[in-house]
Design a protein around this nucleic acid. Sequence first.
DNA 1: TTCAAATGTAAAGTTTATTTTACATATTGA
DNA 2: TCAATATGTAAAATAAACTTTACATTTGAA
Lengths: 66, 66
Amino acid sequence: MTNNIKVLRAIKNISQEDLAKKIQVSRQTINAMEKGKYVPSTVLALKLAMFFETPVESIFTLESDD
Amino acid sequence: MTNNIKVLRAIKNISQEDLAKKIQVSRQTINAMEKGKYVPSTVLALKLAMFFETPVESIFTLESDD
DNA sequence: TTCAAATGTAAAGTTTATTTTACATATTGA
DNA sequence: TCAATATGTAAAATAAACTTTACATTTGAA
């Protein structure tokens, strides 16, 4: 699975740290997520979708190996 | 977070076991998810959304304590 | 250039998702 | 009723998410 959190963050001009605070996770969680180091929970995905005002499907994309 | 997988499953008339096979998880994962026993991964949410041909947001709903 | 803010990363620890096995109960059709 | 299928659940084990701390590197503005 891939995501475009980094781009969405750039559009909203918000740092990893501030985003982390907004959705109540650690900064490292945001960083690791952007780097594709792990698959976030659905709660996290929904919170990001709410924050960025966009569907979950426009943030996260399944890949063939998922 | 809540979900309406049970309803969607009823509409499509598919058993927990068959759904589990379709999205490649164990039947217990489907059962526990329906029962709200844990929060699935985003990969799982996206697979369910694809299978049920509906947005992730229409399957899962954040609650105040999320 | 210099300082501060932002980002990348890593290791250790905790919590939680998911699997496997197993069994009990419920439901439904013949 | 009987048998098959579906569902609920539980315990133990494993994998993975997420946190905390800590430090190094990058970037951008003054």
